[in-house]
């Protein structure tokens, strides 16, 4: 038989960017433990709509843990208590009857709240736009097997490229640092032979944009890694630091074009 639970939901409500915002508390009854966390929020929304209130706005799309759209801090942990899991893949069986669940938006200066739990994450896009690409115009590529890439390197690049860009690393960091996000892209592209040509330029540009967007610095504490739903390791940050130091060293003697 399916088990159900009654919950108290304490959720951040904020009308728009300028609103001050505050917590609101709602009671929910008979939530199936097989429901996903976002389905629980759907039910809350329907309940609010039925009462003539606006539902809680939250970002979500694929609901299978890959698009990176869902973004909420559940009981103090971005994406909730299960490691390596996005909020959309979190299921209610990890909560218990009578529990109070506190839901807050990502907290970071570069991620202003748009409404309730929805924040603006375009600064992450800007970091990519400044250098997170390997230039290869459509039609200009050589044969895919022309350049063998050792399996270890390809696997490492894939580990880094698994980032879904949700911003949980920023949300988890007490400094709102985007180092894990930035480093994952840098490590992915800098480690591949195709990405070598733009390596130094990419690293410098992305770090400059990252700092310019107002993200904090890294204090190597590792909360980002713990919150990352794709378990991107801190290794990527070390990789970025290394590549940044090298690029700046070269830049000191001869400006990197």
């Amino acid at each position: 038989m399916e088990k159900t639970m009654n919950l108290t939901i304490r959720v951040w409500r904020q009308k728009n960017r300028l609103d001050v915002g505050k917590f609101a508390e709602y009671k929910l009854a008979d939530i199936s433990e097989d429901s996903s966390f976002l389905e629980m929020l759907d039910i809350l929304s329907e309940q609010l709509v039925a009462d003539g209130h606006e539902p809680v706005a939250f970002d979500h799309d694929c609901r299978e843990g890959i698009c990176g759209m869902c973004s909420m801090t559940i009981n103090g942990i971005p994406h909730g208590p299960e490691s390596g899991t996005t909020a959309c893949q979190l299921h209610m069986r990890h909560f218990h009857d009578g529990q109070t669940i506190t839901i807050e938006p990502w907290r970071a200066k570069p991620f202003p709240v748009i409404k309730d739990l929805v924040v603006d994450r375009t600064p992450l896009d800007k970091i990519i736009q400044s250098g997170g690409f390997i230039t290869a115009r459509a039609g200009s590529a050589v044969d895919a097997n022309a350049m063998p890439i050792a399996k270890g390197i390809a696997d490492y690049a894939m580990d880094a490229a698994a980032c879904i860009g949700c911003g949980a690393c920023v949300a988890a960091c007490p400094n709102a640092s985007a180092m894990l996000f930035t480093s994952a892209k840098v490590a992915h592209m800098n480690s591949l032979p195709q990405g070598k040509a733009e390596k130094d330029r990419r690293t410098l540009a992305m770090v400059t944009t990252m700092d310019g967007e107002g993200f904090g610095g890294c204090t190597n504490i590792g909360e980002c890694e713990a919150a990352c739903p794709k378990s991107i390791p801190l290794d990527m940050i070390a990789h970025l630091n290394r590549d940044y130091a090298t690029a700046q060293f070269k830049n000191f003697f001869k400006p990197v074009a």
Binding site: F133, A136, A144, N145, P148, I149, A154, A157, H188
Partner: peptide
């Protein structure tokens, strides 16, 4: 075929064999 070439050039980390080929 061109798609695979294009994607590899763009840095898509396709699975590879130990010899480094796709």
């Amino acid at each position: 075929s061109d798609i695979i070439d294009q994607c590899v050039a763009n840095g898509v980390p396709f699975a590879r064999e130990y010899g480094g080929l796709l």
